[in-house]
Simulated assay, not measured.
Amino acid sequence: MNARLFSRISIGEKILIGLSVVYIIIMLFTLNLGRNSNLVVRSFKQIEEEERYLFILEEIYNENLFTLRHFNDYIHTRSRDSFVQYEQHRRIVDVQLTALQGISSVYTFNTSYESLLLLDSLDELREFEDFLLDNVSNGRFGMNIVLYDSQYVSLVDDVDRILIRLLEQRRSLLQTLKQTNSEHVQYFQGSRIGILLATPIFTIIVLLFISNTVSTPIKKLEQTAAEFAKGNFSKRVDIETGDEIGKLAKVFNDMAKNLQTRTKELEQSKKDLEQEVRKRTRELNKQVDELERITNIMVDRELKMVQLKKELSNIKSKK
């Protein structure tokens, strides 16, 4: 049905449809290329954010080590310098934690269970540190040493384990993202090359199809015209399209039909004329024969008259 409808449209419309198909193909390839480009850009952005997340996490780990070391010195020696260093590193850790929470709130792939567990453990550790600092302010030094050795060290170990585990997870995730990004880049490059190759190929195919729909009927018209030139008016153009060539083929067929009819009429007229000529010839031959017969009779009579005259003349001369 679609082929029949396509055959009924004009050549100009066929060319317009072909160009539209080529344009749609190019647009689809372009959209696919744009989608792949977005994947690559998004992948690079994820890698960038994950690297930032990992960097902050490593900073938290390192700064937390300094914080714990200076806090340990302060609890055991109550050195003012240790307390100042402890507060500085603790503020740095708090700033980094705030930045880490900001990343986690924006990028959902960063909100893992380990991340949340780290935040809770650090909050618990800071609360316990504040409790120990309050004991120092109240002069309960002995209790602090006992609590530090029995509970604080355990909390520190938990935080260290969570940080190390989280760092390993994030490094593994970053490696996976880089590998995925590499695949996206390769796919993007392959798609770009594919588009560069496929676009002209599809264009050529569409143009060849349109050219074939135009050139094939023209060749049929040419072959039929050659048969007409040989006098074979029984040949017909087998083109059933609704375009200009189809209309021209119909004119060709009508012309051939008319010529064939006229030729048959001329041949019949020729036969009739030949029959009439033969009839007239026979009649003329009969008339000629009759004239010859009459002429012979008259000649015989004349000869006889001459003979009689001679005889009469001889008779008269004898007398």
Rank of each mutant, 00 (worst) to 15 (best):
V146N: 12
L177D: 12
R171P: 00
L132K: 06
D157W: 02
V153M: 07
D149Q: 15
Y148C: 08
Y152V: 09
D158G: 02
R140N: 10
L167D: 07
F141L: 15
Y187V: 14
T176W: 08
I145N: 13
L116A: 08
F141N: 12
V153H: 00
V153L: 15
D134Q: 08
V153N: 05
Q169Y: 09
E183Q: 14
E183L: 09
R126C: 01
E127S: 12
D149Y: 03
L132Y: 07
E183Y: 13
S137T: 09
S115H: 12
L118G: 00
R161G: 00
F128R: 02
V156C: 04
Y148W: 11
R171S: 13
L155P: 04
S121T: 13
V159P: 03
N135I: 00
R171V: 05
R170F: 04
N138R: 15
I164Y: 02
Y187M: 08
L147N: 06
Y152A: 04
L116K: 03
N181V: 03
R126M: 11
R165Y: 02
D134G: 10
I162P: 07
Q175C: 01
Q186T: 11
N138A: 09
Q175R: 06
L132C: 14
T176K: 14
K178D: 10
S182H: 07
F128M: 15
L132R: 07
Q169W: 03
S115Q: 15
I145T: 12
D123Y: 03
L155F: 14
S154R: 05
Q186F: 07
R170S: 11
Q179P: 00
M143T: 15
Q175N: 10
L116D: 05
I145F: 04
D123L: 02
L125R: 15
D157P: 00
L174H: 13
L133T: 04
S172V: 04
Q186W: 04
L173Y: 07
L132I: 10
L173G: 01
R161K: 02
K178E: 15
S172D: 13
L174G: 05
D157E: 07
Q179M: 11
V136I: 14
R171C: 01
L147S: 11
V136D: 06
S115M: 06
Q151T: 13
Q179H: 13
N135M: 09
L122E: 08
L167R: 02
Q169L: 11
S172K: 11
Q169K: 13
L174I: 03
N181E: 14
E183H: 08
V185R: 12
D123K: 09
L119I: 11
D120C: 01
Q169E: 13
L147A: 15
Q179N: 15
Q179A: 12
D160K: 06
L116R: 13
S154G: 04
R170I: 00
D158V: 02
D120L: 01
N181I: 04
D160R: 05
R171E: 15
D157G: 00
H184F: 12
R171Q: 12
N181W: 09
